[in-house]
Design a protein around this nucleic acid. Sequence first.
DNA 1: ATGATTTGACCTGA
DNA 2: TCAGGTCAAATCAT
Length: 310
Amino acid sequence: MEEIISSINHACIVAENILDLPNLANKPATLSLSIDEIVKTLSDTKQRLMILSLHGHTSKPSFAHEIVHQPQIDATSMQEWASSSYTQTMDQLLQGERTLPETNMTGKEAMEVLPSRSRKRKVDIEKRTTLVPAPQFGNTEIPPEDGFTWRKYGQKEILGYKYPRCYYRCTHQKLYGCPAKKQVQRLDENSSIYEVTYRGNHTCHMSSTAPLSVPPQHLLALDMTQSTISPHLSQISASDSGWWLSSMSLSLQQGGGGLAPAAADDGGGPSISRYGADYPVVDMADAMFNSGSSSGNSMESLFPPTDQDK
DNA sequence: ATGATTTGACCTGA
DNA sequence: TCAGGTCAAATCAT
């Protein structure tokens, strides 16, 4: 545990060091390295906490082998999930034209073919299932965060499951006809793990008027892992960046790594809280892009926009 | 007033 | 027939 605390402290120190943005603006490589270090440190720490939590909470040692979709939860798979599965899922969600595997239809085509009122069992529609740990601190009843906003439309007791399954659809379904849905099922074997099944692709972000809550996370997550400063960062105001850095620091000092506000329900609960504990990087990105500040010093002075942005 | 959540009823595929 | 998924009215929260 000491190692974990030490790692968090280290990340905080690095974060504090890069708060000196005006000076570091001239050293993008240094800034990039520092950010990489923070991300890596926190990511590693998070994995350790997950492992610690799993081993500490599980009464059944064989639990890991009982999981159907992801047979093993260990540091490697968690890392893969964090850096690959999650971003991959986001990729898929962002690609409205993505071809659905069994249907040879794009997401849009599937939407058009399947009437909205249709209750045709959508076994042939793409399903992506991930196992997501519940927040380790504070209220563990909070369903896993994924950066999207969801509206709960149903809950049902499922045969063989101790906990009810909760059904969510994209908040923007009405406005933008976004077909994305997800199911959240708390596992019997380990109530600190949620099985989250996503169905359908988000189309809400494609509308020019649609809220832009996801792509920035997605972009930043990718950019962070690629050790590059995204040109999209040029859209962030300096006040935002300062805010998220200090927020991150504050959250870490509180020991929660950026906890979602308590807004729990019976296990599925509203998923409106946007800054969950599970995705430190994307949460930071989300905070950066959604903090609402549109005025102030532009980060353009730090990262001049490229032609692509114009 | 508006939007989100709850929950019993209903619909559909297996 | 049954279980899973969805609807929609009632209720709650802001």
